[in-house]
Write a protein that binds this DNA or RNA. Structure first.
Lengths: 224, 224
DNA sequence: TAATATTGATAGTATTACTATTGTTTATGT
DNA sequence: ACATAAACAATAGTAATACTATCAATATTA
């Protein structure tokens, strides 16, 4: 059986749905790779056009500007992650076990479960780690928020906060703890790789210690 | 008595020390304000030059580019904050009390204790909240790190992690918890103002609930 | 087969992110 | 008080960025 999950994103993100053409998917796939290679600041539609042998103007027919492409990719990731978390939690009854599974899903980019996707999980994880917060750290947050551009991120946090409440119904800050968890699952990894003295993890080691750190923090915070 | 603290920053941050001339200080002061007004992406040296009635070329004599100016301002803030924290902790012996004071210092932009500075604390707090992570989320992190451009941030985290260890000497992740605390003191405030559903704080309310959230999280995490 | 949508090719504009040069003002040292 | 160096203003110029517009060629679909 071929598992193919279709992720449908907010229409305001694009001018023309990139999923509906080969070229559109190429813009997304190769755009992701090129942003990861150059960094978002140095990435331009012109460079992408050259890389995929099309023209700048053509890319502009799909996305208003590069920031929209970034938000598109980041949203793809959050939507994907919410789905992944949902699957990871099916048939699990113990709330603490749920938390542990959420943290693993957040920190460890998957075993390419859905690798038939045209967007690679490891790549989009890296993108979110390096560029994710640039999607909302702008003067247009308010407007973008009105257009629901952050809905996937909020939905994920809302889902996590429900599990938090399940662990401890009296805990007063489930949403903040959820957003802290999500943010830190990326920031701590970025720090481990680039500014290791901000962490207690060796640069060369794997992500297990990050998982341990976050699990401990969240579960201790939720103790009754 | 006039209290004037002199913050000396890494020489690699500038081409010409802006503290040493009226114009230099104006570049820093008004640059800070203009970045806050326009957002870092839309801020340019040309616009700043017009605002302070000088020329682009003159500003380039002080700072290599706008990113360096950003890092300069962010470093100023971390250095200032470490100093502020240091003062807040003098004569305090109880480690938990120290943590509480650190959190207050992080979350609540000061009562303008040192308002004779040419850099305003509230403004530089806003800058760090909105643009701070852009100082390290670049492809040049590694190089910038080699040039010690993140030392003030690391020093602050190191100092906080010492207090964390004081609270619980057996706790295994003092640095990660410190960087989590610092990051979240800004992120949660940004969320409260711009994406409130990621928090449990009302948009209009003050910062007390953020302090309470962070205090609870850190102190519970450190319980023996 | 006609109509329509998609892409390619080309061109053009305003702005950005700089660098270079030259001349004028301002500060400093003797 | 005067020379000399440093700081700054004024101007000009360049390559790249972030777009927009037009028109023709090619698919797609009705």
């Amino acid at each position: 059986m071929e598992l193919s999950l279709r992720i449908t994103l907010n229409e305001k993100l694009y001018l023309k749905n990139p999923e509906e053409s080969i070229l559109g998917r190429k813009i997304v796939t190769d755009g992701l790779k090129l942003i990861n290679t150059l960094g978002f600041e140095d990435f331009t539609f012109k460079k992408l056009a050259q890389a995929i042998e099309t023209t700048e103007a053509t890319i502009y027919r799909y996305f208003e500007n590069k920031h929209r492409l970034l938000v598109y990719l980041v949203n793809w990731y959050w939507t994907y992650l919410e789905y992944k978390v949902m699957i990871q939690l099916t048939n699990i009854t113990d709330a603490k076990e749920k938390i542990k599974r959420i943290i693993s899903a957040l920190v460890i980019p998957a075993s390419n479960d859905f690798s038939n996707q045209y967007i690679g999980e490891k790549e989009v994880f890296d993108l979110v780690m390096y560029e994710g917060s640039k999607s909302y750290l702008t003067r247009s947050v308010a407007n973008n928020n009105k257009d629901q551009l952050f809905k996937p991120y909020k939905d994920l946090c809302a889902r996590i906060s429900l599990v938090i409440t399940e662990v401890n119904p009296k805990y007063k800050y489930p949403h903040s703890l959820a957003s802290t968890l999500v943010e830190m699952s990326h920031a701590q990894k970025f720090f481990r790789l680039n500014l290791p003295s901000l962490t207690d993890f060796a640069k060369d080691k794997n992500d297990k210690s990050i998982v341990a750190f976050l699990e401990h923090m969240v579960l201790e915070t939720l103790k009754k």
